[in-house]
Simulated scan of single mutants.
Amino acid sequence: MKMTALTGISGAVLNELKMGKPRTLELQSAHNVISIAALEPGPDTYLFLTNVDLEDLSPGDVGIIVRVLSVSVSMKRVVDYIHPVYYEERERLTARSQLRYCANSMVKTVRTGTICEPVTVEVVKAAHYRAI
Protein backbone atom coordinates (compact mmCIF):
# COMPACT_ATOMS: atom_id res chain seq x y z
CA MET A 1 0.00 0.00 0.00
CA LYS A 2 1.62 3.31 -1.10
CA MET A 3 0.99 6.51 0.84
CA THR A 4 2.46 9.82 1.94
CA ALA A 5 4.61 9.80 5.08
CA LEU A 6 4.93 12.28 7.94
CA THR A 7 8.20 11.84 9.81
CA GLY A 8 9.59 12.98 13.15
CA ILE A 9 6.20 12.79 14.90
CA SER A 10 6.45 12.48 18.68
CA GLY A 11 5.92 9.05 20.21
CA ALA A 12 3.40 10.59 22.64
CA VAL A 13 1.32 11.86 19.69
CA LEU A 14 1.43 8.43 18.04
CA ASN A 15 0.27 6.79 21.28
CA GLU A 16 -2.56 9.30 21.67
CA LEU A 17 -3.75 8.60 18.12
CA LYS A 18 -3.70 4.87 18.89
CA MET A 19 -6.38 5.50 21.54
CA GLY A 20 -8.84 5.77 18.64
CA LYS A 21 -10.17 9.33 18.92
CA PRO A 22 -9.55 11.81 16.10
CA ARG A 23 -6.75 14.25 16.89
CA THR A 24 -5.61 17.44 15.15
CA LEU A 25 -1.91 17.90 14.46
CA GLU A 26 -0.31 21.26 13.66
CA LEU A 27 2.79 20.75 11.56
CA GLN A 28 5.51 23.34 10.97
CA SER A 29 8.31 21.23 9.52
CA ALA A 30 8.68 22.11 5.82
CA HIS A 31 8.68 18.54 4.48
CA ASN A 32 5.62 17.60 6.56
CA VAL A 33 3.73 20.77 5.51
CA ILE A 34 4.46 19.97 1.85
CA SER A 35 3.22 16.41 2.35
CA ILE A 36 -0.04 17.52 4.01
CA ALA A 37 -0.71 20.34 1.51
CA ALA A 38 -0.71 17.83 -1.36
CA LEU A 39 -3.56 15.78 0.16
CA GLU A 40 -7.32 15.90 -0.37
CA PRO A 41 -9.12 14.60 2.73
CA GLY A 42 -11.59 11.79 2.18
CA PRO A 43 -12.52 8.24 3.13
CA ASP A 44 -9.69 6.80 1.01
CA THR A 45 -6.93 9.23 2.06
CA TYR A 46 -4.34 7.70 4.38
CA LEU A 47 -0.99 8.79 5.84
CA PHE A 48 1.89 6.90 7.40
CA LEU A 49 3.18 8.51 10.62
CA THR A 50 6.46 7.60 12.28
CA ASN A 51 8.75 9.04 14.94
CA VAL A 52 11.80 8.36 12.75
CA ASP A 53 13.44 11.46 11.22
CA LEU A 54 13.20 11.94 7.45
CA GLU A 55 16.94 11.43 6.94
CA ASP A 56 16.85 8.10 8.81
CA LEU A 57 13.64 6.65 7.32
CA SER A 58 14.35 3.23 5.80
CA PRO A 59 12.67 -0.14 5.15
CA GLY A 60 11.76 -1.93 8.37
CA ASP A 61 10.88 1.23 10.35
CA VAL A 62 7.55 1.04 12.15
CA GLY A 63 4.74 3.55 12.46
CA ILE A 64 0.98 3.87 12.15
CA ILE A 65 -1.52 4.38 9.35
CA VAL A 66 -4.08 7.15 9.89
CA ARG A 67 -7.10 8.33 7.91
CA VAL A 68 -7.08 12.03 6.96
CA LEU A 69 -10.34 13.68 8.03
CA SER A 70 -9.49 17.33 7.29
CA VAL A 71 -6.62 19.51 6.08
CA SER A 72 -6.01 23.23 6.53
CA VAL A 73 -2.90 25.16 5.43
CA SER A 74 -2.42 28.72 6.68
CA MET A 75 0.16 31.47 7.07
CA LYS A 76 0.86 32.89 10.52
CA ARG A 77 2.46 36.29 10.88
CA VAL A 78 4.63 37.09 13.92
CA VAL A 79 5.85 40.61 14.69
CA ASP A 80 8.58 41.35 17.23
CA TYR A 81 8.77 45.00 18.20
CA ILE A 82 11.05 46.66 20.74
CA HIS A 83 10.54 50.42 20.81
CA PRO A 84 12.04 52.34 18.96
CA VAL A 85 14.90 50.48 17.31
CA TYR A 86 14.07 46.83 16.68
CA TYR A 87 11.28 45.61 14.42
CA GLU A 88 11.07 42.16 12.85
CA GLU A 89 8.25 40.49 10.97
CA ARG A 90 8.22 36.77 10.20
CA GLU A 91 5.81 34.48 8.43
CA ARG A 92 5.34 30.81 9.21
CA LEU A 93 3.46 28.35 7.02
CA THR A 94 1.59 25.75 9.09
CA ALA A 95 -0.63 22.82 8.23
CA ARG A 96 -3.33 21.45 10.50
CA SER A 97 -4.78 18.03 9.88
CA GLN A 98 -7.35 15.98 11.76
CA LEU A 99 -6.39 12.30 11.77
CA ARG A 100 -7.87 9.01 13.01
CA TYR A 101 -5.85 5.85 13.74
CA CYS A 102 -6.34 2.84 11.45
CA ALA A 103 -3.52 0.32 11.93
CA ASN A 104 0.10 -0.35 12.86
CA SER A 105 2.43 -0.70 9.91
CA MET A 106 6.01 -1.10 8.72
CA VAL A 107 7.90 0.54 5.84
CA LYS A 108 8.63 -1.68 2.85
CA THR A 109 10.14 0.96 0.50
CA VAL A 110 10.86 4.71 0.71
CA ARG A 111 10.74 7.24 -2.13
CA THR A 112 12.05 10.76 -1.53
CA GLY A 113 11.94 13.26 -4.37
CA THR A 114 13.00 16.87 -4.49
CA ILE A 115 12.53 19.27 -1.58
CA CYS A 116 9.07 20.29 -2.87
CA GLU A 117 7.66 16.76 -3.23
CA PRO A 118 6.03 14.71 -0.48
CA VAL A 119 7.82 11.65 0.88
CA THR A 120 6.02 8.47 -0.16
CA VAL A 121 6.37 5.03 1.33
CA GLU A 122 5.07 1.59 0.60
CA VAL A 123 3.91 0.00 3.83
CA VAL A 124 2.79 -3.38 5.05
CA LYS A 125 0.07 -3.60 7.70
CA ALA A 126 1.40 -5.29 10.81
CA ALA A 127 -0.45 -8.43 11.86
CA HIS A 128 -0.23 -9.63 15.44
CA TYR A 129 -0.93 -13.22 16.29
CA ARG A 130 -1.34 -14.48 19.82
CA ALA A 131 -1.20 -18.11 20.95
CA ILE A 132 -3.94 -19.24 23.29
Rank of each mutant, 00 (worst) to 15 (best):
V110L: 02
V110Y: 01
T109K: 08
V107P: 04
T112I: 14
V121S: 06
S97L: 01
A103V: 09
C116P: 00
R100Q: 14
V121T: 05
L93P: 03
R100I: 15
V107I: 12
R92S: 14
K108H: 09
E89D: 11
N104C: 08
R96T: 00
L99Q: 14
S105V: 02
S105Y: 01
V121H: 06
Y87M: 08
E91C: 10
E117L: 03
Q98N: 13
E88G: 09
T120C: 02
L99W: 12
T120P: 00
R100C: 12
Q98I: 10
E89G: 11
T109V: 01
R90E: 12
V107A: 07
R90H: 10
T94N: 04
T120M: 03
R111H: 06
R96M: 00
E89K: 14
E88K: 15
T109L: 05
S97H: 01
T109H: 03
E89I: 14
T112V: 11
I115R: 02
E117I: 02
V119L: 08
L99D: 13
P118A: 06
V119R: 06
V110S: 04
S97Y: 00
K108N: 09
V121P: 05
G113V: 02
E91M: 11
L93K: 13
S97A: 06
C116Q: 05
Q98V: 13
E89F: 10
L93V: 11
Y86W: 12
Y86P: 07
R96A: 00
E91R: 14
Q98S: 15
A95G: 05
T94F: 03
C102R: 08
C116W: 04
T112S: 11
R100A: 15
K108Y: 08
R100D: 10
M106D: 09
L99F: 13
C116V: 05
T109Q: 02
I115C: 00
